[in-house]
């Protein structure tokens, strides 16, 4: 096979290359024709007009774009939309709406878990997934005993939320909101 030319070499024209992807976003099946370069974040914001997820750094450093894809939180800015054929995607809009808030959204409101609010959709998506990760027994850097079941502690929450940056510094209130949701569910 080495040296075979079964596929013609694509030429570097910088013309957009289009591809089709179908996935479920917040319970709705969506089909999009996209430039292959489109991140999942841009697909949601620019094509589906779901602007809750935010673009902060666009390099996976700030967490403002966090979505829950197939049950896991990821940086939507660092993944291509076309790589998610058939995926189940939840954005902040799918977690809850003003008239029926998700418990984590309600807890952020109650505990003032934000100031400017820009990082908040990512914080909330991450926070929901973090509690699920602890419940599933996934250890973290601060879990003392790798073979024990991790607990919801302040140290665990702070470590697991380190991929979500808040420039306003609402961290202690975010910890309180998450702790309340974890306790209410237990």
């Amino acid at each position: 096979m080495v040296g075979a030319t079964a596929t013609a070499a694509p030429t570097r024209t910088d013309e957009p290359v289009l591809a089709t992807v179908t996935f479920t976003v917040n319970g709705q099946r969506r089909e999009l024709e996209l430039d292959t370069r489109t991140s999942l974040l841009d697909a949601a914001r620019e094509h589906l007009h779901l602007t809750g997820s935010k673009k902060g750094c666009d390099h996976g450093q700030c967490g403002a774009c966090t979505m829950i894809v197939d049950g896991r939180r990821i940086n939507a800015c660092l993944t291509l939309a076309i790589m998610h054929q058939g995926a189940e995607i939840t954005t902040i809009e799918g977690l809850g709406q003003p008239d029926h808030l998700h418990p984590m959204q309600a807890a952020f409101v109650k505990h003032d878990g934000y100031q400017c609010g820009y990082c908040t959709p990512g914080q909330i998506c991450s926070g929901v997934a973090v509690l699920e990760e602890i419940k599933a027994g996934i250890p973290s850097h601060v879990t003392a005993d790798l073979e024990a079941t991790p607990q919801v502690t302040e140290a665990e929450i702070r470590e697991r939320m380190s991929g979500n940056i808040c420039r306003c510094g609402a961290y202690s209130n975010i910890v309180e909101a998450m702790t309340e949701v974890a306790g209410a569910r237990a």
Binding site: G63, R73, I74, L78, T79, S126, R160, G163
Partner: peptide, 9 residues
């Protein structure tokens, strides 16, 4: 290494 979001991918 990295963050929870990155380790998931």
């Amino acid at each position: 290494g990295a963050s929870g979001q990155l380790r998931n991918k």
